[in-house]
């Protein structure tokens, strides 16, 4: 693991240098990541106020905190790799990555984390600003805060492995936009991004337990809100570990099959 340290250092350095070149593009991307949860926040806050201050066990302030936390967790775990791989393969850029004596996933992980570090400088004040504007009150429990760190790291890794693996579909077809769109819609429902999962019918909640999306987003958010019991925390971490290992194995399998099929077009 330590052997990778200088390589990751090199990738971070490069990722930051490249990001600095595209400050405006970076801010526009950020704007998208802020507007979406903000929209849900405003809608649910309004619904809650009209319902007398509470919907499905969530009070108005809970909705505000939920969506601000969702914005942060979503930002911390999101990837853009499913859109990028098609371009890489079509343009032959993937060949350059394959020639390097390191698995291409490492540069993508480092690139992603580099971007997150840089954008944190914008996201943190925006979070505080939103919390002030919507008069959010939040009293975290120390143990949930402590558990949040590993839970967020697991959420990031499992989401990364799964989305990186799905990006590999580009080896079979370069028309993966439809698949990406389907993934986003399914994830929107089952991850708790659209609304807290407890507001959905029972059947959706059970499906969300089985699918990986909840463990990527809603679980860390609910933990921050103090809506998870210690027992549920252990079950959640177990689910995250399961999906992480499954994602890793799937990634290994699809990557090997993909590069065997790779035709190095245009490279």
């Amino acid at each position: 693991m330590f052997a990778y340290y200088p390589i990751y250092k090199g990738y971070f350095r490069t990722a930051l240098m490249v990001q600095f070149q595209y400050r405006i593009a970076m801010l526009i991307w950020l704007l998208g990541g802020i507007i979406e949860p903000l929209m849900y926040l405003v809608v649910w806050r309004t619904v809650s106020e009209q319902q007398g201050g509470s919907v499905g066990g969530y009070e108005t302030n809970d909705f505000v905190v939920y969506f601000i936390a969702m914005m942060m967790v979503s930002h911390a775990t999101f990837t853009w790799i499913m859109w990028e791989y098609v371009y890489r393969i079509r343009m032959g850029l993937f060949s350059v990555m394959l020639l390097k004596p390191i698995h291409p996933i490492h540069s993508d992980i480092a690139d992603n984390i580099g971007y997150k570090f840089l954008t944190l400088t914008v996201m943190a004040p925006i979070t505080l600003l939103l919390a002030w504007f919507f008069e959010a009150t939040w009293q975290p429990l120390p143990w949930t805060l402590a558990a949040f760190v590993p839970v967020l790291i697991l959420a990031f890794l499992m989401r990364f492995y799964w989305e990186w693996s799905l990006a590999m579909v580009a080896f079979w077809t370069t028309r993966i936009d439809a698949m990406n769109q389907a993934y986003i819609v399914v994830s929107l429902f089952f991850s708790g991004k659209l609304a807290p999962l407890s507001l959905f019918p029972e059947i959706v909640q059970r499906a969300a337990d089985i699918l990986p999306f909840r463990w990527m987003l809603a679980f860390p958010v609910e933990l921050l809100l103090g809506r998870i019991t210690p027992r549920e925390l252990l079950i959640g971490i177990g689910a995250q570990l399961f999906w992480l290992v499954a994602g890793y194995l799937f990634m290994q399998f699809i990557y090997r099959a993909g590069i065997k099929r790779y035709a190095a077009f245009g490279a």
Partner: peptide, 29 residues
Amino acid sequence: MTLVMGQRNQLLWDIPVIDTFELNRAVYR
């Protein structure tokens, strides 16, 4: 080994050449 393809670039477009060299130093140890 190395493969040099005439029209393919491994140099990163937006950063100085020496910085791509530095990245290769890390990757190739």
